[in-house]
Design a protein around this nucleic acid. Structure first.
Length: 477
RNA sequence: GGCGCCGUGGCCAAGUGGUAAGGCAGAGGACUGCAAAUCCUUUAUCCCCGGUUCGAAUCCGGGCGGCGCCUCCA
């Protein structure tokens, strides 16, 4: 009964062991806020959220940090193209990103450090690396990390760097590097950098930090020198995270990260999502097309984070239906007839079974697909049990409701679905009025009128359910 | 070229040695004025070939097919 996580560094399923018992420090590489986030980004960010929620659900005292990159090549180019500054360009996109996160149910994390707020610590960090012989200043005003000074470089990705650059990818004369493999910690400012406000004073002159450095410095500043978990997309393994290890361990002499976890990139309609294929899907678009955010969330967590995930609109339809089943189940359970004198039911047993299966699934390297299966088995089991009975004990109902809501603390599906379906009082009053009219028509066996009313409501995504206790209504997506 | 991953029913997707979770879709039935919701029934020799084993979707070898990284893409 312990959490096992696949560790990219060891390439094996390791037992999660934080530095300090009961506490967990997590650093996740967040987005570069120069544009709208796409659906692939959110597979990763939703996984971060799953980790965040599950660690808390498991009782850890979690400190979770996700950076927002607000200065790098892409940001600078985008800001310059928009004839603005990097801060004016990234500000709104940062807000939009956080807004998308809220919509999809990504819980706020403890800190969202932005690189531009850490320039001082970054300069200090570079000086430490220089002092320890891991970095050197070049004549062009840049400071480079010396790969030769860090023998284990390449271990995370499992590559031998001595042959890595044997190919002719690197323009040897581009910078004043001592070794083609070396990477920049500090880059001298260009005219464009100055124009968009991406240049700061430093002991090496005007310039800006290298992208890899940002994460090493912010994670250390916010969480300490050794992190329990570091998360990111699979593309970041090399060189980004490899470089972070070299920088951080080079500067501190201590292990940087205990567990490295990486999320696999998703596919869209069976193909890699890429600009050249023109199949980028932004979260914004899906929301504007009217897709339920809970369905998006469901689809993105419906497969294991290290496995393939093929994102399709057909799949989104399926997820929409799955989420609706969950909502209907909660509504039914909450409204079930209770009777303290009723005989004991299967619900407490099913609830216990579901919680246990859910935990086993999530402990197995955050297997959300298996965890969802546990939830749906529970749904079927309880529905069948309720069909066999007229009433259940209040405590039995509560045990089932508690289990459902507890599991949703991690999955966040009901939570997001409810938020997306909130109705104002005016609409509710109108619907109630229509339902009364329909009830009167039905009493007169005037089914034509009754059906017309039902269709009028359906046109506004209101679906009716006639039961023994009267008519219930719900908003569907 | 180097390193690595994947191929499970119509679609999506768990399962890494004991004879196939779950969701969606479909078909039949129960319930309903009709629906909706729900329940019941129903749909897989796990890409192919060989091997190891009492036993393999799961391990090994080969093949076919798809893909990723080695480029500051989550």
């Amino acid at each position: 009964m312990s959490l096992k996580v696949y560790n990219t560094a060891t390439r094996s399923l390791d037992t999660f062991e934080p530095l300090e018992n009961g506490r967990a420090t997590v650093y996740a590489c967040g987005p570069t806020i120069y544009n709208h986030a796409h659906i692939g980004n959110f597979r990763t960010f939703l996984f971060f959220d799953l980790v965040h929620r599950y660690l808390e659900w498991s009782g850890y005292d979690v400190r979770f940090v996700m950076n927002l990159t607000d200065v790098d090549d892409k940001v600078i180019e985008a800001a310059d193209a928009a004839r603005t500054s990097i801060s004016d360009h990234t500000g709104p996109f940062g807000e939009i990103f956080l807004d998308d996160c809220r919509t999809l149910g990504v819980r706020p994390v403890d800190r969202y450090p932005r690189a531009t707020h850490y320039i001082g610590p970054m300069v200090d960090f570079i000086e430490r690396l220089v002092a320890r012989g891991h970095a050197y200043a070049a004549d062009d005003g840049a400071v480079y990390f010396s790969i030769a000074s860090f023998p284990t470089y390449g271990r995370l990705k499992g590559i031998d760097t001595s042959t890595l650059m044997a190919g002719a990818r690197v323009e040897q004369d581009e910078y004043e590097k001592e070794d083609a493999r070396d990477f920049a910690l500090w880059k001298p400012a260009t005219e464009m950098d100055e124009r968009v406000g991406a240049a700061w004073d430093s002991p090496w002159g005007r310039g800006r930090p290298g992208w890899h450095l940002e994460c090493s410095v912010m994670s250390t500043a916010e969480l300490g020198e050794t992190l329990d978990m570091h998360l990111g997309g699979e593309d970041l393994i090399f060189p980004h995270h490899e470089n972070e290890i070299a920088q951080s361990e080079g500067a501190t002499g201590k292990p940087f990260v205990r567990h490295w976890m990486h999320v696999k990139h998703l596919f869209v309609e069976g193909r890699k999502m890429s600009k050249s294929l023109g199949n980028f899907i932004r979260v914004r678009e899906l929301l504007e097309e009217g897709y339920d955010p809970a369905a998006i969330r469901h689809l993105l967590i419906s497969s294991h984070y290290r496995g393939d995930l093929n994102f399709t609109r057909a799949g989104l339809e399926g997820s929409r239906a799955a989420v609706q089943r969950l909502l209907d189940f909660e509504t039914r359970l909450a409204g079930v007839t209770v009777d303290a004198m009723a005989e004991a039911s299967e619900l407490p047993g099913l609830a216990e079974e579901a919680r246990a299966a859910f935990r086993v699934a999530m402990d197995a390297d955050f297997n959300s697909a298996d965890a969802l299966a546990a939830v749906f088995r529970f749904v079927s089991g309880v529905n069948a049990a309720l069909d066999r009975r007229d009433a259940v004990r209040p405590a039995d109902r509560d045990s089932a409701l508690d289990a459902l809501r507890s599991m949703d603390q991690v999955l966040g599906l009901l939570e997001v679905a409810r938020a997306a379906r909130s109705v104002d009082d005016d609409l509710a009053a109108w619907v109630e009025q229509k339902i009364e009219e329909r009830a009167a028509a039905r009493a007169d066996r005037d089914f034509a009128t009754a059906d017309a009313i039902r269709q009028e409501l359906a046109a506004r995504n209101i679906v009716l359910e006639d039961g023994s206790g009267g008519t219930r209504w719900k908003v569907v997506s």
